[in-house]
């Protein structure tokens, strides 16, 4: 008998616990700050949470304006090597950033060692969802950012549209389009990397990005 079968057999004991319902649970019934459903309210809820987490928030009306904000962010860091995911919107915005000596590398052709030593200062990615209730950004590896791009560089810039805001986490996690497909990794990002392991003092940028910026585009 294999270990697998033995473990499963050991668990086959009639259970006296009462049968519980297996209804998927609804966020709205539990949380006091379940956001209202108008678009403006969702944006406002997201913004408030995101700022409270030390995120940098930019709401823009056009791609041009988005490119301007990106340019400012590029100026705010040292170095001029960036990683950009292959999402068309990201590429579009990034390449229309004016008069800047800039170079972005394709993650698929960048080795790990190169990523460490070249010291990329910015990773620019798209996202799948923005969660209003918690100010979180949900992204999967299949959006061509992969796993490393959003965590290695010290500044992570996310480009997303207002259409991507959902009220709460359950809306994102129950979305069938999100769940289908060939992705192996996803993450819910709530603020920049942080730690309080030393005397409960909050420090940003423990191992992941020290700064997290969101450029929210009116579609």
């Amino acid at each position: 008998m294999s270990s697998r079968d033995r473990i499963l057999q050991n668990l086959q004991v009639p259970n006296s616990l009462k049968k519980e319902s297996s209804q998927p649970f609804q966020d709205s019934s539990i949380y006091s700050d379940y956001p209202e459903k108008t678009k403006e309210e969702l944006i406002e809820a997201f913004r408030a949470h995101f700022l409270a987490l030390n995120g940098e928030f930019f709401h823009v009306r056009s791609k041009e304006e988005a490119a301007e904000r990106v340019a400012e962010l590029l100026h705010s860091v040292e170095g001029n090597r960036y990683l950009v995911d292959s999402n068309p919107l990201c590429r579009d915005i990034f390449s229309s950033v004016p008069e800047l000596e800039k170079q972005f590398d394709d993650i698929t052709k960048t080795s790990l060692e190169a990523m460490e030593f070249a010291e990329y200062s910015i990773g620019l990615t798209s996202a799948d969802f923005l969660v209003a209730r918690t100010g979180s950004i949900v992204l999967r590896s299949s959006i061509a950012a992969g796993r490393r791009l959003s965590v290695l560089p010290p500044l992570h810039i996310v480009v997303a549209t207002v259409e991507q805001i959902v009220p709460s986490l359950d809306a994102a996690l129950q979305n069938s389009e999100f769940r289908n497909g060939e992705w192996s990794y996803g993450t819910i990002i709530t603020g920049p990397s942080r730690t309080s392991d030393i005397e409960k003092i909050l420090v940003l940028g423990a191992h992941g990005p020290k700064r997290l910026a969101l450029i929210l585009l009116d579609a």
Partner: peptide
Amino acid sequence: GTGQQLTGYNSFVRGPQSATEPDG
């Protein structure tokens, strides 16, 4: 655990790198 609304990163992994992904 820590009095946070959500912990900074909650990641889910469903397997090794898939054919369409750049890394993993």
